[in-house]
Amino acid sequence: MSPVFTTLDKPLNQTGGREQLSWLGRIDPRARILAALAFAITIVACDSFPVLIGGVLMALLLLVNSRLPARRTLKRMATMDSFILFILVLLPFTVPGEPMFTVMGLTASWEGLWQAVEIGLKANAVILALMALVGTMEPVTLGHALHGLKVPETLVHLLMFTVRYIDVLREEYLRLRQAMKARGFRPATSWHSYRSFGYLVGMMLVRSMERSERILGAMKCRGFTGRITLLDRHAYGARDAVFAAGIALLLVSLVIAEVSLGAV
């Protein structure tokens, strides 16, 4: 069974840590988080098509450099697109403007179509960049980096505990499902089926709570005093500064393009 968060398979180094494959993966995680945030805000604020297409290209460039498996990442994106598809399909019919064509008495407008395309471009550019910049991190590194960015300690620890136990609980879930299957359970649209799923969820909550009690006991045994020390110390180097400057340059040029195109 593969872990939930395998966005990128990385080889282990001699001490058992994960090695980063790409140069992007070796950039300071804090710089990558801030870059993703700056990218998202810039793209969402821009409106002209050339700039948005530039943003998508920039995100694709990051994706290639992150060495994420392109097919799987794009497939995930397509899943997200299918969620929003119906809102986008409705838009041409609900935005008033120059008529494009008429179906069953409903008129689709060009303005609506452009707005739908705009949303699609923005959403995909941001999510691609986010997965390429931040999604390649180990979830624990993400926690450390957020701590480095002054996110409240409690929230960081909550995040770390959550990532630590998602895989454990998923295995627990699969074991319970297997036990149900062994007893002849087949999911269907029925009262029995929903009740069984409900019991399954309830049992998972009960087991998680009991496990957390054992964990707290074990932590206290080892001298837990209400503070967890994070060991990772990130060093912000010259390479990170170059990366930050490069991203800033690209984003500023996008903004300049947006302003000059908007002025025409």
Partner: peptide, 22 residues
């Protein structure tokens, strides 16, 4: 801090539950 283990564990449980398709 004392409540973080139980909160984190339940947060993970709800994350896993959101992966269940019925």
């Amino acid at each position: 801090m004392e409540k973080i283990p139980v909160a984190g564990m339940l947060s993970a449980a709800f994350f896993v539950a959101s992966l269940i398709h019925v």
